[in-house]
């Protein structure tokens, strides 16, 4: 899951919980999912430095 997808889903969860239409059980399930997404986002932000690839335009066919 990309950072963009994780943040997008987290945002949707916040909006759904904020709307207050879900029952308590569903809300707690959403909250648990939200915590996982927060952890995923933090992991992605802290992920290691990527290698820099260098090439010449003519190497691309």
């Amino acid at each position: 899951m990309t950072f963009e997808e994780a943040v997008g889903e987290l945002d949707e969860i916040v909006q759904r919980i904020d709307a207050g239409e879900a029952n308590l059980e569903t809300m707690m399930e959403e909250h648990t999912r939200g915590q996982l997404l927060v952890a995923r986002c933090k992991t992605l932000l802290e992920s290691a430095e990527k290698q820099i690839e260098k090439m010449d335009a003519k190497d691309l066919s």
């Binding site: 943040v7 987290l10 945002d11 969860i13 916040v14 919980i17 904020d18 207050g20 879900a22 809300m27 909250h31 939200g34 915590q35 927060v38 986002c41 933090k42 932000l45």
Partner: peptide, 18 residues
């Protein structure tokens, strides 16, 4: 990181309010 933290806080606040 601030955005994620903000969303996390909003989610908790929304749960508490709910």
């Amino acid at each position: 990181a601030q955005l994620v933290s903000h969303l996390e806080t909003r989610m908790r606040s929304a749960c508490v309010r709910n």
